[in-house]
Nucleic acid binder design. Structure first.
Lengths: 213, 213
DNA sequence: CTGTAAATAAGAAAATAATCCTATTTTTGT
DNA sequence: ACAAAAATAGGATTATTTTCTTATTTACAG
């Protein structure tokens, strides 16, 4: 769906984004500076005027913006949650009949759905990744695995987290308990002990969202 | 960036997607059925012809497609990898100075980058998810974890995979070896044995890409 | 505050997209 | 295999966008 209002707003926003007025953007794009005059967006007889796709092409070319950039200007949502819905079923159920075809593709009506990669809308810009470079955390994390971290998400009990201490350590653990005085974290490697760390030794704690396999 | 070729190809693809010819799509959209004739895309004098954004608006309206849908048709990649580049560093390095600020956000110039969620271009439409519903695979997978599966990716040695056997089992394992006669898979739970399965008992095998934490 | 440049309003002219039309080809249904 | 419908080619005409032009307003620099 594309409306007249959306296309002109996107043009205006693109201009602003690159430090131009609509007139300046037109000029920069090799169009007449009056091409994007607001007075020309509706005809004297009241009909809306629609720019050609060539004009759009030229303004993208002049600014270096992509169609993807332009799309985000067309749409009202400032920070679009770029998820995709994929089928989901319980692992224990998956062996039953009716979930997979012979090639291993989902089939049948019994699947739920999940958005992937679903992460908090509010920290979209803050994600980072850590790559595992040894086998100290096997079998959970192996060399080469990538952890996707959300520093802004508030971890809850049971979450796997990255903790930094005042001693400079950075650890991946499971959060077992937390209260005002300390946190209790469980090792992801059974060979290591669980730990209780006073809150004043915790510099920060960040939630692990996804792990590559 | 938007080229003449891209805009016309997107129109053609939109038509095909909704079961129309270009002529049928134009008609369905209230345009003249000859609007999208290939012979009209280049003028007799060799100049390219660019449809108006009103025409684009009308075909989206007629098909119910969004601008986002249209964008994915504009672009060359059949299944666009809707990735976002996020900072990446080795876990072992992350404790050193210069990687995090005091609130736990990446800082400094020493970070690499990774695309997330990176998955094979060729099976974008085929991903599905399995949700773990018990603790039989701890510590690797816990109840509530979600596995993102790519049925089309060819698993390699060392990958974690989902295997379905002719006996109807569906298992999550690590692929250790595979040859023409059998596969060898390692349990993700140390309490269970590794297995060798004849290839003729493997119905399908799919790669696990990501796990939620 | 003032002068200059940029931006915008808006009408007319030129260029271009869409429609109309005829003819031919291709596809579809029987 | 054949007839009918749909699709496409392509020229002519109409409608619409862009450019050209003049005038006014707004923004900016001194």
């Amino acid at each position: 769906m594309l409306t007249h209002e959306q296309i002109w707003r996107a043009i205006d926003r693109l201009a602003t984004l690159f430090g131009y007025s609509p007139s300046g953007l037109a000029k920069q794009s090799g169009l007449d500076p009056t091409s994007f005059n607001k007075s020309k967006r509706i005809s004297p007889d009241g009909k809306p005027r629609w720019p050609s796709t060539e004009s759009i092409s030229r303004i993208l070319n002049a600014t270096g913006a992509t169609m993807s950039d332009f799309l985000s200007l067309v749409e009202d949502v400032e920070a679009q949650t770029k998820n995709k819905s994929i089928p989901l079923v319980g692992f224990a159920q998956a062996g039953a009949k009716g979930f997979f075809d012979e090639q291993g593709y989902p089939e049948g009506d019994s699947w739920d759905e999940i958005n992937f990669p679903e992460y908090d809308k509010y920290n979209d810009d803050m994600l980072y990744a850590l790559e595992i470079s040894d086998d100290s955390m096997e079998p959970l994390y192996r060399e080469g695995d990538v952890l996707i971290i959300s520093p802004k998400s508030t971890p809850r009990i049971g979450d796997r987290v990255i903790v930094k201490t005042t001693g400079g350590e950075i650890m991946a653990k499971e959060l077992v308990k937390q209260n005002a005085s300390r946190i209790e974290i469980k090792s992801l490697n059974p060979e290591h002990d669980d730990r209780k760390i006073p809150q004043n030794e915790v510099v920060w704690i960040a939630r692990i969202l996804w792990v590559s396999q």
